[in-house]
Nucleic acid binder design. Structure first.
Lengths: 258, 258
DNA sequence: GCAAAAGTGTTTCTTGTACACCCATGA
DNA sequence: TCATGGGTGTACAAGAAACACTTTTGC
């Protein structure tokens, strides 16, 4: 074992060394349906096939920085790094896959992240970036490169579970939104219908969840809705919904695959 | 970019390559208190200091295999790999830390696992393995090497949250156990007292949680308790407790650090 | 006025919580 | 018999579910 210096111990040379990718399950709600972000691969392996946005971690980068960089390269949007809670975005680590049997190039570790975001437009195809697009995830998406179908399913299940007890549903909404929009998020993510009146009471009555802005959101038919924002100073990963807002038992509650 | 072959694309050479460790937060309940497994480090860095059991992933290993191997080397016990659900043990991935600023040897990624286990004895110190021991985690453990204090706190919080809605509390118990032992697990993990009678009703009345064995556990004073086992064929990570067994609001419910 | 959506009130039922009470054993 | 812990019954309160009803807008 080559001890370069007594003050700077070295990693044992029997240890493996692995390329590491960061892949992102980016979810949003558009037109009442849950969508995931995918890109068409420009390079082998799986060239031309859809995949989750992601790529290799570069030396000197943190995992979060790599996730933000890949998202920016492939969607043009800038995710404030360490953005857990800053703005409507929410980025959190999902889990790590690999290193064996998931990449034809050899052993590769993939650290995956879950991004919950309000709907946003994507740059047109072309340029140096692969085309990124939103695809609905109505149960049957499928067909992604690598083990990305599996990762996507795990990300969706995480999102479904998380909005039960955390205020993270608001991460799918713009900074100010009516209660009905938040309800639409829950309905899209869970794939169920919720009673508008009971949801309103529960959402507005839970301390540390919503905060009225005083403004009204006009536009559509019917009475204008009051606009709310996510309560200030609340950790968006904290369990503030006590008791939780639980999905109806009919809704899919599959455990994430081990 | 050196394309070694058209049929076997290579990892781009701008990608970083990282040593990867697996570290395990092993928790158990002994004498009514939650304990974590730590080992005393025999090598630099942090020689002589306590740390979570773990070590480098070797080439050709899966992460779970590495976790099982490290546990076996340091505690002498054999964790059936892919053991999610087999036997009373439960091993699940916690999260991944790094690669920057956590190891004086340089950038190292740590994939961490959470092991929930019934109390078991440990081999005596000496031999080629570091001494492993159980330490109580009454809030103030502290003093572990690397970022292991942080990882341990995340693991404890995961365990606290998980037993609310999954049958995993039984992973701390032997194959057959009285309801009171399971209640003791909840009390130790949450650091609260629970009403024995209501707990009994809830635990035995939840479908897919406990299964009577018909046997009685004698021994102590008082009426002998019926023994139960974890219900067969239930995914221990599935959320079977509906509605969940929720910890009293006074109990620590800190969100895992981002 | 009418339709549509927001928001409130009310009733019913389920569940958590607290605690009185009985059961089965050892000393 | 008493102490100890296992297990059941019951009353109360909090919350979920269902839905009638009022409010406020556009057409």
């Amino acid at each position: 074992m080559a001890d370069t210096a007594r003050t700077r111990p070295a990693v044992p040379d029997t240890a493996g060394s692995f390329p590491v990718t960061v892949d992102v399950v980016a979810l949003t709600v558009r037109e009442g349906a849950l969508h995931a972000l995918v890109v068409d691969r420009l390079l082998e392996p799986f060239r031309g096939q859809a995949a989750l946005p992601g790529g290799f971690v570069l030396p000197g980068e943190t995992l979060e920085q790599a996730a933000g960089r890949e998202l920016e390269e492939e969607t043009g949007l800038t995710v404030p790094t360490g953005a857990t809670g800053a703005g409507p975005w929410h980025l959190e680590q999902l889990r790590t896959y690999g290193p064996l049997g998931r990449d034809p190039r050899g052993p590769v570790l993939s650290v995956t992240y879950l991004l919950l975001a309000p709907a946003f437009g994507l740059p047109a195809a072309g340029g140096d970036a692969a085309e990124a697009r939103w695809v609905p995830v109505d149960g049957n998406a499928g067909g992604l490169a690598f083990d990305h179908d599996h990762i996507l399913a795990d990300g969706i299940e995480r999102a479904r579970a998380k909005i039960e007890y955390s205020p993270l549903g608001a991460a799918f909404c713009p900074p100010e939104f009516p209660v009905a929009e938040l309800r639409g998020v829950y309905e899209a993510v869970w794939g169920t219908r919720l009673d508008a009146r009971n949801f309103h009471r529960k959402a507005t009555g839970t301390p540390g969840f919503l905060e009225p802005t005083g403004r009204l959101g006009g536009g559509g038919p019917g009475r204008p809705a009051e606009l709310y924002r996510l309560a200030a100073g609340v950790d968006p990963t904290a369990a503030v919904l006590h008791p939780p807002l639980m999905r109806p038992v009919s809704s899919g509650r599959a455990a994430p695959s081990a």
